[in-house]
Amino acid sequence: MTQRAHGGPDASGQSPFDFSTNANACGPCPSALAAVLAADARSYPDPAYRALRDSLARHHGVDVARIVPAASASEAILRITARAVQRGVTGVSVPEFAYGDYRHAAEAWSLPVHARGQRHAAGAATLAWACDPSSPLGLADAPAASVAASTLVVDRAYAPLRLSGADPWRAHAGLAWQLWTPNKALGMTGIRAAYLIAPEGGEDEAAALDRLAPSWPIGSHGVAMLDAWCHDEARTWLAQSLDTLRAWKSAQQALCDSLGWQPLRSDANFFVARLPEGTPADLLARLREQGVQLRDCASFGLPGHVRLGVLPPPAQQALADAVGGAAGGSGGGATTMHAPNPWK
């Protein structure tokens, strides 16, 4: 099976300057954090999540029967794949560059995986994954580009963190499953909780997914976070944070340009950069030793590229300094934000 690779803490612990994950760097959202801290950890949550389902349904303007709580996006991916197998799916379609858990879940069921655009057998029942926007590239899969599928799921983890571009799925939201993981937008990825919205008319399938869930897939802290997500305070904070992220992203892309790292187009709060020819193979390990962590894109099928979540100016300066240190730092001092590429 494909080995799963993720950003974030590793065996060395949390990096002081972690560009490898895509959480909202303005977080945590104050109102969501307050709700989590006030959650009652002494008691089980309602196993049916009735109040939470009502809040999420009102938030999205859908019938409550279409809401399916999940322990996390990864748990939801595994569960919806299992349900697709029950329904006779014989193949899985994924974007060319995408989060590895889609493929992992398919391989767990010995399902063949096809990159978007590859042909499937005529009449084959297919589970198709689309992203809005995707990781690592931060670009949306257009509805027209999605294959005809027995089950279509749009992963909208980063839709709330869109910094540019239009939402291509707004007019098509009722045609596909939607997977939402607000912990990223709220800057609270340590709280694991997510939910699915079934397509219009998909209430029976939502109930079937519920039957595949363990008891209490979300704990009291996850319930508190998801409920806070539905309130005006969180939405106002998120909207304000996007302006800050846009400014930070522009500065971070300019820094990458100055280092000779070519930023690729992205609409989200993260982007991929192509490293220059001659970059040492152990660059990321050397940067990690200096407290700066980047996401190697080789596991996405993009060797020679790194993904960088947008972080505030002090972290960007730490990146510039670490690159200078990894290159041997000619003069022994710290680099500037616009240091020349040391490997040219």
Results as ranks from 00 to 15, higher is better:
residue 139 L to V: 03
residue 95 P to L: 04
residue 131 C to L: 03
residue 132 D to C: 10
residue 130 A to L: 07
residue 123 G to S: 05
residue 88 G to C: 07
residue 102 Y to K: 03
residue 112 P to L: 06
residue 128 A to C: 10
residue 110 S to T: 13
residue 133 P to A: 01
residue 112 P to D: 10
residue 84 A to D: 08
residue 110 S to M: 10
residue 85 V to K: 10
residue 106 A to H: 06
residue 96 E to S: 11
residue 110 S to L: 10
residue 79 R to I: 11
residue 127 L to T: 01
residue 134 S to G: 15
residue 89 V to E: 05
residue 125 A to V: 04
residue 140 A to Y: 01
residue 141 D to V: 11
residue 122 A to F: 11
residue 122 A to N: 10
residue 106 A to E: 05
residue 135 S to V: 14
residue 107 E to N: 08
residue 118 Q to D: 14
residue 114 H to L: 11
residue 136 P to A: 11
residue 109 W to P: 02
residue 88 G to F: 02
residue 138 G to F: 00
residue 100 G to I: 01
residue 142 A to G: 12
residue 79 R to Q: 15
residue 112 P to A: 07
residue 134 S to H: 00
residue 116 R to C: 08
residue 94 V to M: 05
residue 96 E to T: 13
residue 83 R to D: 09
residue 108 A to G: 13
residue 102 Y to S: 00
residue 125 A to F: 02
residue 139 L to S: 00
residue 125 A to C: 05
residue 94 V to N: 01
residue 109 W to V: 05
residue 109 W to S: 10
residue 134 S to A: 14
residue 83 R to T: 03
residue 91 G to N: 09
residue 120 H to E: 00
residue 93 S to H: 06
residue 131 C to S: 13
residue 139 L to P: 03
residue 106 A to W: 00
residue 81 T to M: 11
residue 115 A to C: 13
residue 95 P to D: 05
residue 114 H to K: 14
residue 113 V to K: 03
residue 87 R to D: 12
residue 89 V to F: 04
residue 135 S to G: 00
residue 132 D to S: 14
residue 124 A to R: 02
residue 117 G to C: 08
residue 127 L to H: 02
residue 122 A to W: 09
residue 130 A to I: 00
residue 129 W to R: 03
residue 107 E to Q: 13
residue 134 S to N: 13
residue 89 V to Q: 01
residue 120 H to K: 04
residue 82 A to S: 15
residue 93 S to Y: 02
residue 114 H to Y: 14
residue 111 L to I: 06
residue 100 G to W: 01
residue 83 R to E: 13
residue 98 A to N: 11
residue 86 Q to D: 15
residue 125 A to N: 07
residue 124 A to F: 03
residue 96 E to A: 12
residue 104 H to E: 08
residue 136 P to C: 12
residue 98 A to S: 14
residue 137 L to T: 06
residue 90 T to E: 15
residue 133 P to K: 01
residue 90 T to I: 09
residue 102 Y to N: 03
residue 119 R to T: 14
residue 104 H to L: 14
residue 116 R to H: 13
residue 107 E to S: 09
residue 113 V to A: 06
residue 121 A to S: 13
residue 106 A to Y: 05
residue 142 A to Q: 15
residue 128 A to H: 03
residue 79 R to D: 10
